[in-house]
């Protein structure tokens, strides 16, 4: 009886430890990201993506609906192409939806914001969002401001 108790206690301990490790792996790490894991792909072409990185959030009205899967430069048009995985639940995104790159807070990370349009037809796997607004690049902004100032002075 005592031996069985020992085995039971050690068994429970090992199960607890492995369970904790599993929770760490699934919930406390990138393995468990569910939004956008299995979903459909949308593409968006931007002039400039700023600091956007893969795995950044894709939001609609501030709610995460997917994540950025991949970013590359189109070798012909030199646009940045952002591949997004959108959750299956959000499969009725209008065709004339526009995409913008915003920053969450002053120091926050950048994310893609989708602004839904009003069309009756919906975006499907592999479609491209063409109405986009590039990320604000602070240096460019300052540069334009300085140029404007200089031009105004003349």
């Amino acid at each position: 009886m005592k031996q069985r108790n020992l085995e039971l206690a050690v068994g429970i301990f090992v199960a607890l430890g492995l369970g904790a490790l599993l929770i760490l792996a699934l919930q406390v790490s990138d393995l468990g990201t569910t939004v956008g894991r299995d979903g459909y792909r949308l593409l968006a072409r931007f002039d400039n993506i700023g600091q956007l990185k893969p795995r950044a959030a894709v939001k609609m009205s501030g709610v995460a609906v997917g994540q950025v899967a991949n970013i590359y430069v189109d070798p012909e048009t030199f646009d940045a192409v952002v591949v997004m995985r959108i959750d299956r639940r959000f499969d009725r995104i209008p065709l004339d939806t526009s995409a913008q790159i915003f920053t969450s807070g002053m120091l926050g990370e950048q994310y893609v914001a989708l602004d839904p349009g009003g069309e009756e037809t919906f975006l499907a796997e592999g479609d491209t969002i063409t109405i986009t607004q590039p990320a604000l690049v602070l240096e460019q902004l300052i540069g334009q401001f300085m140029m404007g100032k200089a031009a105004g002075d003349e």
Binding site: V28, S29, D30, T33, A57
Partner: peptide, 19 residues
């Protein structure tokens, strides 16, 4: 709370190295 953990903590770099 959970979403930022999931997007930042990496299984290979953080969890595995801690182990």
């Amino acid at each position: 709370y959970w979403a930022h953990i999931e997007t930042t903590v990496s299984l290979r770099h953080d969890v595995a190295n801690g182990l």
